[in-house]
């Protein structure tokens, strides 16, 4: 059977989700996302720049909804109310689209999530029919509460947003993974391909990243690297790694038939 990521009843071929921020221009955005193979791409919702030239290209023209699942986020929101308002606007903007990424920040320096506000926003959004993928801390109890509220995926941070520090607490992620019944995706903190592979080897259902690709020296090439890393990590997890034997080596070549031995 084909190995697909299923979120809110819909199957996706790629387990890599990517953001669209921090690129040099729309052309670089388009090429890097194409190379990444991602099918779900996040966008932010912001006030329109009134007075800008009417012919200015729009991100949604670069990323047609016929090809990509657009995942509007609430990046930059610090209260449940602002997050809910933002996603109601997003739903209108995207013609009734229900799949969204909720994030409610608690602190401008660390961009750590404000979990009480996140839980409150999740409750409102689920009640209004949104399918909520939620950025959260790596606290297994809070992850469980978000799942109980009805979030369709929980997305704990690996390390701070945009930090590129990789997976700092695989043990907490493992507890969340062992218990969750909804997909668990690592969101935030991935720095390079090996980080993404490790996330997948832990058993994550997917990885969401933005800066690691956008701020690589060659974003298009890094998009491809991340695609391969997520695929490799997933395959390794499905294959089941060998046991670790910290104190005893095990030769790969036969111990018999060596030359120069006498009976």
């Amino acid at each position: 059977m084909e190995d697909r990521l299923v979120v809110a009843g819909k199957a996706y071929g790629s387990r890599l989700l990517v953001g669209t921020g921090k690129y040099r221009d729309f052309e670089e955005t388009r090429l890097a996302i194409e190379a990444s193979g991602a099918e779900i791409v996040t966008v932010a919702i912001r006030r329109v720049n009134i007075g800008q030239s009417a012919g200015e290209p729009n991100l949604l023209d670069v990323l047609p909804q016929s090809r990509y699942t657009i995942l509007p986020n609430t990046a930059g929101c610090y209260t449940a109310e602002d997050a809910v308002r933002t996603l109601r606007l997003a739903r209108e903007l995207l013609d009734g689209h229900a799949l969204v990424k909720l994030e409610v920040l608690g602190d401008a320096e660390t961009l750590f999530p404000n979990m009480p506000e996140t839980l409150a926003a999740a409750k409102t959004l689920v009640a209004e029919g949104f399918q909520v993928m939620v950025y959260c801390s790596d606290d297994p109890i809070l992850a469980r509460q978000l799942e109980e509220i009805g979030c369709v995926a929980v997305m704990p941070l690996a390390s701070l947003i945009g930090s590129g520090m990789g997976i700092l607490n695989p043990w907490n992620l493992q507890i969340i993974l062992d218990r969750a019944k909804v997909p668990v995706l690592v969101d935030a903190g991935i720095g390079t391909a090996s980080d993404a592979a490790v996330a997948m080897e832990l058993g994550c259902d997917g990885v969401l990243m933005n800066t690691a690709i956008a701020k690589a020296r060659d974003p298009v090439r890094m998009g491809r690297a991340m695609k391969l890393a997520v695929e490799a990590g997933r395959e390794a997890w499905l294959a089941g790694r060998m046991d670790r034997k910290p104190y005893r080596a095990s030769a790969s070549s036969p111990a018999e038939g060596l030359i120069g031995k006498t009976a």
């Binding site: 921090k22 966008v43 919702i45 006030r47 329109v48 991100l59 949604l60 997003a90 995207l94």
Partner: peptide, 10 residues
Amino acid sequence: LEVVVAVGGG
């Protein structure tokens, strides 16, 4: 009134 568009974001 709030008038919004989609922009690049993560």
